[in-house]
Write a protein that binds this DNA or RNA. Structure first.
Length: 269
DNA sequence: ACGTGATCCTGGAAGC
DNA sequence: TGCTTCCAGGATCACG
């Protein structure tokens, strides 16, 4: 469900309740997520949260001795409720602060994860991630160089975390449309000039989505329960069969790498 | 080394 | 109305 903008919006939503707060209790209501919830997360108890970071689609809650590492998977979202509020279906993990706030991970499909990263180490899952798309580390040259000799479809290429993190299915479709690139085109057969355009749109689309509070489709909502508003700005995602916003040609829906892809046969080459 | 496909799980929507 | 099938925002891992 959540791509980078949704995770970032979640981070901003939970920060005020966590930073500076002391963790009073941690509950693993249902351990069987993508991986079992790491028992070491209880090491957070009694510590003060220093900062809430985001790396790719992971949330890192730094408590000094280590960090809780949360991933929302496809359907995960975080809620902040008063301590003692009745558990709802799929509330798998919970943290309670001394101030009486309960921070809960709710994830129906259980593709999410709750892990522990010891201070001074990098969790193996985070060790091989590519550059953050909104940072200066994400460069046209870097992406272009990585793409050489790659036969992989460009859409799969930008969704691969080794090349750039945080670009999921929705925003991959959107940025390729804006850049005028056919999502099936081999990554290695795209010019430097076109990568320049693409990188610019990836940054722009992600930034705009964060400003709008993310894209609400089925499960996503901000930590305070408010919906995101980026859905109304989507140009192609979910619009197969409708007309292209630029040229009125009918948008086509196909599968690339088992994921639904939508593009304009006229504008994207 | 690279690239593709199966796979984890639940629930909503669409189809019959 | 109710049962069945398909589809979904992710990403690792097994395999050719």
């Amino acid at each position: 469900m959540p791509e980078l903008p949704e995770v970032e919006v979640t981070r901003q939503g939970i920060r005020p309740y966590l930073e500076g707060a002391t963790i009073k209790a941690v509950y693993r209501h249902r351990e069987a997520l993508r991986w079992p919830i790491d028992p070491e997360v209880t090491l957070a108890i009694g510590n003060q949260v220093i900062k809430v970071h985001r790396r790719a689609k992971y949330l890192l809650i730094d408590v000094g001795v280590g960090s809780l590492v949360l991933h929302l998977g496809m359907t995960g979202h975080i809620k902040v409720l008063p301590e003692g509020t009745a558990l709802q279906k799929h509330d798998h993990f919970e943290m309670v602060t001394e101030a009486g706030d309960s921070i809960r991970l709710n994830d129906s499909r259980r593709f999410g994860a709750v892990l522990w990263q010891e201070a001074g180490t990098v969790h193996p899952l985070l060790a091989r991630l590519g550059p953050e798309p909104l940072s200066d580390d994400f460069t046209v040259d870097g992406l272009y160089q990585a793409s050489r000799n790659k036969k992989q479809a460009i859409k799969n290429f930008i969704m691969d975390n080794a090349n750039v993190v945080g670009v999921g299915n929705i925003y991959a479709n959107e940025s390729l449309f804006l850049a005028g690139i056919d999502p099936r085109r081999a990554a290695g057969r795209i010019s430097l000039a076109r990568y320049e355009t693409l990188v610019g749109y990836i940054k722009q689309v992600l930034q705009r989505a964060i400003k709008q509070g993310g894209t609400t489709l089925q499960d996503f909502s901000q930590a305070d329960g408010q919906p995101g508003y980026f859905a109304q700005e989507l140009l192609v995602y979910g619009r197969q069969g409708q007309s292209c916003p630029q040229c009125q040609t009918e948008l086509k829906g196909i599968k690339i790498g088992q994921r639904q892809s939508v593009y304009c046969p006229h504008c994207q080459t």
